[in-house]
Simulated scan of single mutants.
Amino acid sequence: MTNNSTRLDHVVLWVADPVAAAGFYERSVGLEPLRVAEFAAGEAPFPSVRVNEESILDLAPLSSAERTRMLPGSADSAGHPVNHVCLSLPAGAFDALRARLREHGVPVSDIGHDSFGARGEARRNFYFRDPDGNVLEARHYGE
């Protein structure tokens, strides 16, 4: 990938309790939390979790929706359904995530096969929800 190619930087998820959401994504999904202490201290508007070296999920407090003013009507996006966010993992990490979610009591869907995505057909995939109802998909493409 080159520096002038388009990349996904972040996705903002509305959550009721950003600290609890960061804990879920750390413990159950295995993502690194960012700025949680700063958020708790009132020094950052929201915490995040790192998906990879280039992408994060921002965990925006639903209570701040009415103050969202980047575009007219932005506050109305709170509660608007995004169908799901998909995490692409190597096969071993895919299996480890599914096991970790079950270990933490997070319901997961059945395993699907040959689902189309950014890199073509994924060999396996499954879905789960975070505590705020956001739907995530996990998938892997190769061995």
Rank of each mutant, 00 (worst) to 15 (best):
N134F: 02
F126S: 07
A22I: 03
E53K: 13
N4R: 10
F94G: 10
F116A: 07
V85Y: 02
M70H: 15
L136S: 02
S63A: 15
L8A: 13
F126Y: 14
V85H: 01
Y141A: 00
P107F: 00
A93Y: 00
A65P: 10
I111E: 12
R123T: 05
M1C: 05
V36L: 06
V19N: 04
L59N: 15
L87P: 07
A60K: 08
R98D: 03
F94S: 11
F128L: 03
V106I: 05
F116Y: 11
L87S: 09
E143C: 03
S64I: 06
N134P: 12
G142N: 07
S55D: 09
A91Y: 10
L101Y: 08
R50Y: 04
P90Y: 02
C86S: 14
G42W: 11
A78M: 04
A93N: 12
N52D: 14
F94A: 06
A44P: 05
G30K: 00
N3A: 09
A118K: 04
H10C: 14
A41C: 08
D110K: 01
L31I: 12
E66V: 15
R7D: 10
R129L: 13
L13K: 02
D132T: 10
W14M: 11
N52G: 12
R123Y: 05
C86P: 00
A99Y: 03
F128S: 02
G92D: 09
P45R: 02
S28I: 08
A96Y: 09
G92Q: 10
F94M: 14
G92S: 12
V108M: 02
G23A: 00
V108S: 06
E137L: 15
S115N: 01
W14Y: 12
S48M: 11
L136F: 15
R123A: 14
S109C: 05
S5I: 03
A96W: 03
V108G: 07
M1P: 10
G30L: 07
P131G: 08
R69K: 09
G30A: 03
S63V: 03
P47W: 07
P72C: 00
N125M: 07
G79N: 09
N3D: 08
R69M: 09
P33R: 08
F24K: 04
S28N: 04
W14F: 08
H140E: 00
R27C: 05
